[in-house]
Design a protein around this nucleic acid. Structure first.
Lengths: 209, 209, 209, 209
DNA sequence: CATGAATGAGCATTCATTCAT
DNA sequence: TATGAATGAATGCTCATTCAT
């Protein structure tokens, strides 16, 4: 069932009229169902193409997942870099990142599900080019934290990596719940609360600004 | 593939010589492989029983997961309640809870994987008795936070549920990484850092106690 | 299509009511069609069992071939040894072997086809336990030739292995033709002619050296 | 899988730059793998042309086999006829034929495999123009035998057709072994031994009747 | 308490082949 | 002369699950 694949992810053949139909169909099916519960037959039917065509563009079923995820991620990154421009201060950048992050999840439930539920736990995912993009993205987070530490905005008595994990983990956990239970969530409010909490901590203190 | 099941989880028939063999075999297989990659044939072979016997004790394959998870959780709860006795103050309780939590994950990787990777995302899980235990457990967390809010230890300007999500999300995210990449992690150190971070926030401030 | 398999041939599970039905069905299908042109679905249908049952008794489709061939060979060997008892002289033994050999082919076209057309040319066949039986059988031939050489009945100026190859090759070639073109052939007559030819050669003449 | 084809073998369109690329690619693939294990996709890839082009020159995949075989055979025949010129006596001609035959096999393993393993057992092969060439060739053999019988060189008490079968069968069987097991073999030595054996028989002794 | 025997239902994947351009 | 795009059709194989004994 879970075959270990080689490292190579994507098929060279990355364009073609049918490809879009397939990946769109796949995406739409993921909105309602789990990856394993989706059959290639179904994908082909929805896409209006033959099952065989899937295998012209994708190495195997799971490759659909990686290529779709990759498209989401690639579409994301440039936006992300733009978003941070003109923002001063690590904390402000983090706040902005939070918002974009949460907003993206709230708008793209399929993307979120893929990331949170489908690909994790598959060894080959961590070898994939796609995972590199996720790591690149995490790197941005870390850089901002480092910047904050250097500028004195962020505490230096806690490992930056742990800070990143808590920040990203918080977002994911909060969004995951909402996604699983199909609840709406407001990026504005969530960002506000999360920043408030994570910046200043849960302790009610006397002298914070 | 993903069949929707009725609410009833477990089979009455909850003991017997073969049952232990089966659940042990299942547990040992989970150490190395994903649930879906484990076949009933394999479980039976490792357990040294017939495949049919599995269905004397378990309603269906996924039931193995729930029953195993349940055993883990039940073995957990009494320990948890004991742990909190004699501890004063919400923050101290949370710190203690963190430690126990992280400790449990670090010792029981199978348990953690189940919780983080296998059951989530399956609708029937959220209907299951097993999920009740998880909710009960989350409730304890919430109660402590409420207690802290009332006593003035914890901020009252952030929804307690969100606080809980961040607390639990942080733990899980941190542990998940370690589990997926098969890294060791120290409960003591992690607890210390996490509490420090989550209690006081990431902002370097002047006047905290 | 032609997957290289591991060396292990047969499934441990070598008995059971359904197994016979399957192998009988397979055998009957081979009478009319080539191995590759026979589907597992068809075998199951003729056998009156499910496709899945095939895989309880056979590792893969080609395993059916090897197991069937093996049964033929095993049913053969004891008969063969009995046949040679009480016969004196290498040439007489060879003549007897020829007859039995040709008789077997003439009676068992399926068996012959398997041996001549289906298994040859598949690398894994030469690794199989089944091929061992064929080799064992060829060994008998060689032993008789050696015996004849020692007793002075058979020429010693030609490598015994080559003699064997010509003897066996002649039988096979002659029978293969008949089998492919679905012609009857008479073991008595063929044996007579072949022995006459191979024993004395094609050259006409009384006084050969 | 094994579709029954009409009698027409080859496509008129018998030349063109792409054709050679295709048939060369096909030939090179046959060196290492069985016909059925070779895909049209692969042939096209190796040839550096599109899959579709194959169908400009060949009616179907199997047609590649027949056309390649035909090329081998045609390249053979003139050589054969030349070879026999100036040789007197049926036995000498047979000896010469043996040598050429074995030599051809030893030099052209692909050709041999085709003939021995791939085309046999396929009904349509026996209807094909290509098979005609094989039959023509066999006819030459038969003619020589008849000539020998008439001239008194060859025994007349055994059906000439059977003699031919034994002669050709012996060569093939001996060569097939070597080809399957990728062994070298010496045409000179083999010819000598085979002629010695088949001409005079395996029986040792001067005074045969 | 346990199992041998059997299966229903599914499903990814392959591949030769076509045809408009 | 050549191909990019697409497919129809097939098929081996898996696996959870049942039930008579």
């Amino acid at each position: 069932m879970v075959k270990i694949r080689t490292i190579k992810d994507t098929k060279n053949n990355s364009s073609g009229p049918g490809r879009k139909k397939i990946i769109d169909a796949f995406n739409s099916l993921l909105e309602k169902r789990e990856f394993d519960a989706i059959t290639t037959a179904e994908i082909a039917r929805i896409a209006g193409v033959s099952e065989a065509l899937i295998y012209k563009y994708f190495d195997h079923k799971r490759d659909l997942l990686y290529q779709l995820l990759r498209e989401y991620l690639e579409q994301f990154r440039p936006q992300l870099e733009l978003d941070l421009m003109g923002i001063n201060g690590a904390l402000n950048k983090i706040r902005r990142l939070f918002w974009t992050h949460i907003y993206a999840y709230s708008k793209n439930r399929v993307f979120s599900k893929l990331l949170f539920l489908e690909v994790r736990g598959f060894p080959d995912y961590y070898m994939s080019e796609t995972y590199q993009l996720v790591k690149d993205y995490a790197k941005i987070f870390l850089n901002i934290i480092d910047e904050g530490v250097r500028s004195g905005e962020i505490r230096d008595d806690i490992p930056p990596r742990l800070i990143r994990q808590v920040l990203m983990g918080s977002i994911e956990h909060v969004c995951l719940r909402a996604i699983i239970f199909d609840q709406e969530f407001s990026p504005d409010e969530l960002t506000e609360n999360l920043c408030e909490l994570l910046f200043k901590g849960i302790v009610k203190g006397k002298h914070r600004n």
